[in-house]
């Protein structure tokens, strides 16, 4: 279980939360939920979807709490991002993605980086397919703007 999902969940949580320590805690919490609930799955895809859904929801909760209690000046966020992403982001492309608002970033990660179809992203995020499409569209536009001329495949 750990071998299968730790990196996947960490990657996902980190990309949503953008803080290493928070991502580590989030991954831990997801596994704890799994062991406490002991859910049963029809197959491996079902299992993977459960982990991703729980991780996304948990990260959204963390973001929500963060927004309620913290205020970080944007200049500091930029510094934080630059520092935290330096080792992982050798092209700057990922950095541009990470700078998108949460609601765009999450669906873009699930769709483009994790490879889930729109229908599945909608299910994982608990929103409608049209909302997913709209967020993908807006996210792509914003990404294009940030990348200045780099073509984003649809």
């Amino acid at each position: 279980m750990f071998e299968r999902y730790t990196n996947l969940l960490y990657r996902l949580c980190y990309s949503i939360l953008l803080v290493r320590e928070d991502a580590e805690d989030a991954v831990q919490d997801v596994f704890l939920k799994y062991y406490r609930k002991q859910p049963t799955f029809a197959d491996e895809d079902h299992e993977k979807a459960w982990f991703i859904r729980v991780a996304v929801n948990h990260c959204k909760d963390i973001l929500r709490r963060r927004k309620l209690r913290e205020f970080i000046p944007f200049s500091e966020v930029e510094e934080l991002l630059a520092e935290k992403e330096a080792e992982a982001n050798d092209s700057g492309v990922l950095q541009a993605l990470f700078e998108l608002a949460d609601r765009y970033r999450i669906v873009m990660i699930l769709h483009y980086l994790e490879g889930y179809p729109v229908k599945e992203v909608a299910r994982l995020c608990g929103i409608s397919q049209s909302a997913v499409k709209m967020r993908l569209s807006r996210g792509r536009e914003q990404l294009k703007e940030r990348l200045k001329g780099v073509v984003i495949d649809e």
């Binding site: 750990f2 730790t6 990196n7 969940l9 960490y10 990657r11 980190y14 990309s15 290493r20 580590e24 991954v27 831990q28 596994f31 704890l32 992982a88 982001n89 050798d90 092209s91 492309v93 990922l94 993605l97 990660i109 483009y112 980086l113």
Partner: peptide
């Protein structure tokens, strides 16, 4: 390039053991 950069993000050492 984005996918490649994304795939390079891995869990830090010791996380699995901690969990």
């Amino acid at each position: 390039r984005m996918i490649e950069a994304y795939q390079k993000i891995v869990a830090p050492e010791g996380l699995k053991e901690r969990i």
